[in-house]
Simulated scan of single mutants.
Amino acid sequence: MFHRRKTYTIRPERLEEFTSFFHTYLYPIQVSHGARLVGRWVTEDQTEVMALWEYRDREHYEQVERDYRASSLRREAMKKRARLGKDLYIKSSEEFMMPTGHYTPPRTIVSVTAYVTNDAGEVLLVQNMHRNDTYEMPGGQVEEHESIIDAVYREVKEETGAEIEVEGITGIYQNVSSRVLCVTFRARYVSGELAPQPGETQEVGFYKIDTSNISDYIKREHFQMRVLDAMDPTYLPHAIYKVRPYELLERVESHHTV
């Protein structure tokens, strides 16, 4: 892992304003492009705020920075800071650190992706800014306290502009190298104007995909596997629930398409 310690010097009377600015702009900009916030601290005299960010490696950090600089939310943040005044924070500094060991249990990142078809039987594919060597199904990381169902609706909307209706889970895939567990859904397109999203996707569209031409669009084998499984799926049973007290939010039995 690769870590960046970002320190902001602030005026104590502006701590609340800076915290709001951080949560509205700085945090979502980084997280939406793959960084993880390890923690955020303020000194007792409230003159410094320190945030510790985690990346897979320096290459990942540099990619996040490129995506961050190109994002529309960053432009909004700059405008907001101009309105709040440049002394929202007096200065900032950053240091980079490498871990000396692993002291916490391994974490698994849960992501979702969707095989979305339209009335013509075409499949919704995207070409991401950070993976522009291939097309793939839209998707992304599940946020904290978010259900996988809510996540797939949100990710497809954010990456493509499409509203969808989920039909079921067609597969679960684990990348042990990066500790990512991906849940793939099959869904149908309902509405929405398709458009690339700044900082997320550079191409979005429906394509006629089958077993004979899949490699013309999807270049990575693990992405191909998810699409092929979703073409003629057996839907997996799943349940979403809360505990203390128990509340079943969604339950779907297994079935096969006909």
Results as ranks from 00 to 15, higher is better:
82 A>T: 07
64 V>G: 03
137 M>I: 07
114 A>Y: 01
14 R>F: 00
212 S>R: 13
213 N>S: 03
252 V>Y: 11
104 T>P: 02
209 I>M: 02
94 E>L: 10
117 T>G: 05
251 R>N: 13
80 K>C: 02
97 M>H: 14
214 I>D: 06
125 L>N: 08
154 R>P: 04
32 S>Y: 05
4 R>A: 08
115 Y>P: 01
238 H>G: 06
145 H>P: 06
12 P>M: 01
227 V>S: 05
214 I>R: 02
214 I>C: 09
257 T>W: 03
21 F>Q: 07
161 G>L: 08
217 Y>V: 07
105 P>W: 07
154 R>K: 14
142 V>M: 11
76 E>M: 13
42 V>H: 12
56 R>N: 11
240 I>W: 00
1 M>E: 10
107 R>L: 11
19 T>E: 14
19 T>A: 12
178 S>G: 02
147 S>R: 06
90 I>K: 04
253 E>W: 06
227 V>R: 00
153 Y>I: 00
71 S>V: 05
170 T>V: 04
156 V>P: 03
50 M>S: 13
118 N>V: 03
227 V>K: 00
57 D>A: 10
239 A>H: 01
142 V>R: 09
103 Y>F: 13
80 K>M: 11
145 H>R: 15
27 Y>A: 12
87 D>E: 11
232 D>I: 01
223 F>C: 08
86 K>N: 00
137 M>E: 14
18 F>Y: 05
112 V>Q: 10
81 R>C: 03
164 I>Y: 08
89 Y>M: 00
52 L>A: 06
158 E>W: 10
58 R>N: 09
43 T>G: 07
19 T>W: 11
229 D>A: 12
140 G>E: 10
79 K>I: 06
124 L>I: 05
138 P>H: 07
40 R>T: 13
257 T>L: 04
228 L>N: 01
186 R>Y: 00
32 S>D: 12
67 D>T: 11
53 W>Q: 04
52 L>E: 12
